[in-house]
Amino acid sequence: MINIKMRALAMIDALYNTFSISGITWIAISLTSYFIGLNCHRLCRGHPITHPLIITALLVGLCLYFSQTSVLHYQQSASLLHWLLGPVTVALALPIYRQWQRLRHYGWRLLISIAIGGVIAPLTAWLALYLLDAPSAMQMTMLAKSITTPLAMEASEQIGGIPALAAVFVIVTGVVGAIVSSGMFLLFKVTDRQAQGIALGTVAHAVGTAKAIHMGDDVSAMATLGLCINGIFTALVLPLLFSLFG
């Protein structure tokens, strides 16, 4: 019951922060920046590097810098945005539900492909950090880099990572994945369009899926499946493994 109260309080707190002068100002700045970001993304025909989040974060960051506002103050003022992330994560159930029929058509081949991608991507990334002696919080965060941002933030928090870093790692992973994908598919001789879609969705999550949408309906459907299934399983398995062996 305490948690529910806390969550309810968090919502009231977020609303309270919103209806203050700095709350309204910063949320308005965020919305405006996002609007500019969306339009840039559209103008550049959806090139991954112009992902709306990158542009929005840069613009808001600039505003913070020039107004000498601390990030903590901004986070408090715009806490409504952050709080909404929870319910929107829950709403991911909708795209997953809509992909279910398709999943049943493909069965184990699809599941195994996604499972392989979902295991090797975080493990190799973690290994790179481990070999180069990065701090353990960063290693833990990297384990969640290939899943969709909201789940990655929650999962990394559960296993002792840093949610803010997780968000950045995830987005950069997606952008890099979407940019290098054509070259990599050529190099590895992946010509099958469905296989390309699965790889994009599983390894480069939603940014990869956005790229897959440009490649065609069949590719984007597979990418969405990869994104959903890998996201759910990684977010389930990581914290469970850590609570068992951690």
């Binding site: 699809l110 090797i120 190799t124 994908s181 992946v190």
Partner: peptide, 18 residues
């Protein structure tokens, strides 16, 4: 971790599922 392994994993995953 991000650039190299993401690229390689994209290729490998695609190759395996193909």
């Amino acid at each position: 971790a991000i650039v190299v392994t993401t690229s390689l994993c994209l290729g490998t995953t695609g190759w395996i599922s193909q």
